[in-house]
């Protein structure tokens, strides 16, 4: 693209962006790297491949994956309903979507634990009808992470649906496409990159979530102990190197994940641009 000769402000805008990014995000994060350098490679590997650490990685990643998948499904339905349909109280429901951003995670944890505890409103219902205990089991982590993830999915899919050009649907319909075909061949591919982003953001956020999870997880080692809790545990034992080693590994995974997603998005954008 040979745009931009005429557009002003490239240097100041990019300069400010990079400086501010460095000050607020990169320099602070780099302390993690430097702190981990105090460990030898072998020590580092020994810490992150400790079976307890691996088990907590499994718990965190599995829970975040399941939660992001569930939240993505419901998030798309919610976004679809909010954009395409009209019904009573829509504006209120619409405003409610961002509640998980605003509610402190600790409050979310306390509230969800109250609702899903075995004697709680939903906890009791689930216990009596299907015999499943949610709070203080790994399932509790999933519930907390779904709550945290909702706005990420809805708010990335919603704008795309809003912008979506309905004339494409009309054209397809005039060529005799059925509703199912229109959705699967036209609408879905267009919102898919957004769903992917929402999913990735939810997942990345879920892996690191602490505040809400510890109230509802049960925190039993090998079963419901999440990575951030292990980091806190290391900190409480004055083991800064151990804590930063685990934190760094999490950071690298998150970074790679986000990077891949951004590339995927770029690719999807280019491909849809060619269509």
């Amino acid at each position: 693209m040979s745009q931009s000769n005429i557009m002003p402000g490239f240097k100041p805008a990019l300069g400010f962006t990079v400086v501010y990014l460095s000050l607020v995000v990169l320099i602070p994060l780099s302390t993690l790297v430097f702190n981990s350098f105090q460990l030898s490679w072998d020590d580092y590997v020994a810490i992150i491949t400790h079976k307890r650490v691996l088990a907590s990685f499994r718990v965190s990643f599995m829970a975040a994956l399941i939660a992001a998948a569930i939240a993505s499904f419901f998030g798309v339905v919610v976004a679809w309903v909010l954009v395409r349909y009209t019904f009573a109280g829509k504006r209120f429901f619409h405003a409610l979507i961002d509640l998980p951003f605003a509610l402190p995670t600790a409050v979310a944890g306390i509230v969800l634990a109250t609702i899903f505890q075995p004697s709680g409103f939903l906890g009791k219902l689930l216990m009596d009808t299907v015999g499943v205990q949610v709070a203080f089991k790994p399932l509790g982590i999933v519930v907390a992470l779904i709550f945290i993830s909702i706005p990420f999915v809805v708010r990335t899919v919603e704008p795309v649906l809003l912008e979506f050009d309905t004339s494409m649907e009309e054209a397809a319909a005039s060529m005799g496409a059925s509703r199912v075909q229109i959705f699967s061949k036209i609408i879905f591919p267009n919102i898919f990159p957004a769903i992917l982003t929402g999913f990735a953001l939810s997942f990345a956020r879920g892996v690191g979530e602490y505040g809400s999870v510890i109230f509802i997880a049960g925190n039993i080692p090998y079963v419901s102990e999440v990575v951030p809790l292990l980091i806190v545990t290391k900190l409480e034992q004055y083991d800064m190197e151990g804590a930063t080693a685990i934190a760094l590994s999490m950071l690298v995974v998150s970074f790679l994940l986000l990077f891949v997603i951004n590339l995927l998005q770029l690719w999807a954008r280019k491909r849809s641009g060619q269509l």
Binding site: L29, V207, E209, G211, P228, V232, L235, L251, S254, L258
Partner: peptide, 21 residues
Amino acid sequence: TLIDLPFSVSPVISGVIFVLL
């Protein structure tokens, strides 16, 4: 990607890095 990064850093870590500094 770097701009998105704070979304995916565990809140615990977001605090700890400032303590480290």
